[in-house]
Design a protein around this nucleic acid. Structure first.
Lengths: 359, 359
DNA sequence: ATCGCGTGATTAATCGTTTAATCATGCGAT
DNA sequence: ATCGCATGATTAAACGATTAATCACGCGAT
């Protein structure tokens, strides 16, 4: 779209100088007298001049656009990510081009290619489960989990898991069921691992993976949580608010009140977490921070890229970094019910058996 | 980012022809012999040639990029919209640049400007509540509700409301409470209106707007639904799944089982609607269809735009169209409890006052 | 007086593609 | 034999900005 706005030469002509001078003045690069700069700035503003990205891109090889690739754009966490990235990018003067890589890995690859073909200056990729991003020809920042090797920016999912775990432990829970979707996801594994890590001797944790279960029982099938309660589980630590919601409604439906009879926690602090009853206790990642780091790394890589004419491969990458998660305590997790430790495990942790009695 | 790929001239040189011929062959525009076209196609493919968007954009004034402006990117419906638009756009050869207009109207205006400044060929805008989009200098498709005047593509929210209403009425409900967020939203108003429209004489509906309520009672406050049940309401028709979720958890928590003692319906079919207990009955809009229409209209407007050199104003627009919604029947709505019609309204008006007694 | 140099601004080339205008050529019709 | 014309390909001029190279000029130092 050729914007209506005036061109560079228009300003130049208006002031009787050359286009080069105007360009220099506006970018502060060449040698231009202070007063000239002032005059040019003024008329540029007055005329509402906006440089043509196309012209600039052609000359400089920079489009000022970042690509954002998402594993499944329909992911409920997506809004947070996109919003944060867009904000960070636009305040650094970059635009954000999106691409959905729904479906399999090949779709992800194609999405990346589409973006590259559109000459993005860099990419932010939230990879599909277990995907490793191949070297594309431009700077890439991957948002996944710190345990993923290489150029990754991520929330400290493991640490978040620990926080949830500590919280539950502090409340007095000894038997907790971790509920996740798929163990192939690095993020989910880290979260689950973090939770498990705080429950040592004398405690018991088990993990329920939904996807495999649904393979046999059908999509949207009951998770069998009331039975778990009967088995002595008092807390359900879900790897995502989505699962927490599912668990919570299933329990309440069965007359098992949350948090009186069972505690439920989530992850991500999705938009509805605060408004359900009981409001959900969860762990949130600091997307603003993550996005800021990812974009900053990208911008840095992009600007450093220029000198190296030979753009062979050289997928400049963001540094690895780890952003802490925040525990959001609300009402869905509380102390386990009074007469609870009927089913305490016998084995390894005898101590356990002792510890968890009486009201 | 100057892609590694070969330039147009590279192909030209390889075959010993001029760049113009290659361009013509690839675009099928000028006069090129069939065999030449074939040869050029072949080597282009072989060399992995991808045209430079920058070069093309500069010459043609077309960037091949559409802008997507969202009222609140954090809106849970956003993923569906973005995904659908991206798909439609990319299969028409367009890229999608996003901009978040969170916050007030002025932010929305700025977001639009940012996009325009980046030379998008067209815009898809999901406006903030009650916003009217000013004439920007490029084709615009607005996704809102059919009752919004001018160039709009939208789901038939009113019709969706009617479907929900009919469903509830068919189930035997006579007193239904409509729950929405804010009456200033065209979409919400239409949905509510559609629901109301099916309940005539002998029925009673009332509407609860959450936002005003929270102004005084605080965010996340209880909606007081158990009291409403006591007043004789048997169905809660929520304007969004978000509200439905809130209603459902509040009711279940109070021991009012859904759908046995009260029915709950939503709108939008958000991702978790099928997995909660009971699974949510809701009305879904056909985003794929809506996106396809919006993008098609935009693409048409863009291509027709060229001849008209004078690009003064002329905000070419999408035609108004209305896409039907789909009722998704699941478990959260059923017939009202047996001994229920104690409180059946007598006359339209008085009924209200009377209606609200006895448990 | 001249050389050198710093300053402020201009020239001109370039990025890669498109496209109107031009040119060369061969062939059928007058 | 020549004119006209269709065909196939080439030339060259944009598009709008950036930037290396160049230029004009005045001033202080030799």
């Amino acid at each position: 779209m050729a914007r209506s706005g005036p061109k560079l030469t228009r300003i130049a002509r208006t002031l009787g100088v050359s286009a080069a001078t105007v360009s220099n003045a506006l970018s502060g690069k060449g040698r231009v007298s202070a007063e000239m700069v002032e005059k040019i700035r003024a008329t540029a503003a007055e005329l509402g001049y906006v440089p043509s990205q196309a012209g600039r891109a052609l000359r400089t090889g920079r489009t000022g656009v970042l690509g954002l690739v998402l594993p499944d754009i329909a992911n409920p966490l997506f809004p947070q990510i996109a919003q944060a990235i867009e904000l960070a990018a636009s305040s650094s003067g970059y635009g954000v081009l999106i691409a959905d890589s729904r479906g399999d890995v090949s779709t992800q690859t194609k999405a990346i290619e589409r973006l590259i073909d559109r000459d993005v200056d860099g990419l932010v990729i939230v990879p599909r489960r277990g995907t490793r991003i191949a070297d594309v020809g431009c700077p890439v920042a991957v948002i996944d989990t710190p345990s993923t090797p290489g150029n990754t920016v991520a929330a400290d999912h493991w640490g978040g898991g620990r926080q949830i775990g500590e919280h539950l432990k502090g409340l007095g829970h000894r038997r907790v069921l971790i509920i996740g979707n798929n163990p192939a996801s690095n993020v989910q594994n880290d979260r689950a691992g973090g939770i498990r890590s705080v429950f040592g001797e004398g405690y018991h944790t088990d993990t329920l993976w939904i996807e495999p279960l649904e393979k046999v029982a059908g999509k949207g099938c009951p998770l069998g949580l009331p039975e778990k309660v009967a088995e002595g589980y008092t807390a359900f630590a879900c790897i995502s608010d989505l699962h927490a919601l599912r668990a919570l409604t299933e329990l309440q439906r069965a007359g098992i009140n949350v948090p009186e009879k069972a505690s439920v926690t989530g992850f991500d602090d999705l938009i509805w977490a605060p408004v359900i009853t009981p409001a959900l206790t969860t762990a949130r990642m600091d997307m603003t921070e993550i996005a800021a780091i990812a974009v900053a790394a990208l911008v840095k890589a992009i600007s450093e890229r220029d000198p190296s004419d030979p753009e062979i491969g050289a997928p400049v990458t963001a540094e690895t970094s780890k952003v802490p998660m925040h525990l959001v305590v609300r009402q869905s997790a509380a102390a386990p019910p009074a007469g609870y430790p009927i089913h305490t495990p016998i084995t390894a942790a005898t101590s356990v058996t002792e510890g968890g009695h009486q009201p």
